[in-house]
């Protein structure tokens, strides 16, 4: 067992666990968007950031991937952490002001849409990759992938061809946190 400290509280976890796993085990809340217990951590949404004092230095890390180490001091709500989260929620909210899950996050963090908010967005994909990863890791089909990069990054089928690998199980629909998959799904599988 590895002993360390979250928000001043002594906690324990097993070797190989992440901060997020230990925190949740102890009922300490850390928000996430791209995390799912059934999937390998991916580290894209960055909502689960925490500040870790490693002794020599203190830095902001993502709790879903950071493996616990003995003696570290974790702050789940330090000012730097709060600043990162506030901005992520702000950016997400401005991208898709209508998405219910984002609205909920915005309410929690007291964030309101800014003057940069997009209007008439009905496709609220945040590229959390749950659909791609679940198709690959759980279903084993690899009918979905990421395409392009940067602001043009997208969820797509390989080579933008309807996929013969898709078995229409609908797992991607189930895990999609924003409902964006509902629009993409009809174009995924080959007839």
């Amino acid at each position: 067992m590895i002993t360390f400290n979250i928000n001043g509280k002594k906690v324990q976890g097993q070797e190989g666990w992440t901060i997020l796993e230990v925190a949740r085990w102890h009922g300490i809340d850390i928000p996430t968007l791209c995390h799912h217990e059934a999937l390998e951590p991916y580290g894209a949404c960055r909502l689960c950031v925490v500040e870790v004092d490693e002794g020599k230095r203190s830095r902001v890390v993502i709790s879903c991937m950071y493996p616990i180490r003995s003696g570290i001091k974790v702050q789940t709500d330090a000012p730097r952490v709060a600043n990162v989260r506030r901005w992520i929620v702000q950016l997400l909210l401005d991208e898709s002001p209508g998405a219910p899950q984002i609205q909920e996050l915005a309410k929690t963090f007291g964030v309101t849409p800014s003057r940069f908010k997009k209007t008439e967005v009905d496709f609220a994909c945040h590229l959390c990759g749950l659909c791609v990863r679940t198709c690959q890791e759980v279903v084993g089909a690899q009918a979905l992938t990421f395409g392009n990069r940067g602001l043009r990054k997208e969820i797509a089928t390989p080579y933008h061809q309807r996929s013969t690998d898709c078995i229409r199980c609908g797992t991607c629909l189930y895990v999609c946190p924003t409902g964006a998959m509902e629009q993409l799904f009809p174009q995924v599988s080959a007839p």
């Binding site: 949404c45 960055r46 990162v84 940069f116 945040h126 392009n148 990069r149 940067g150 990054k153």
Partner: peptide
Amino acid sequence: IDESCGKCIPCRLGLKRMRE
């Protein structure tokens, strides 16, 4: 912004907002 891989939100959307 052109070269960001787009995987994480702070870089993909944060840089865009800074640019705005």
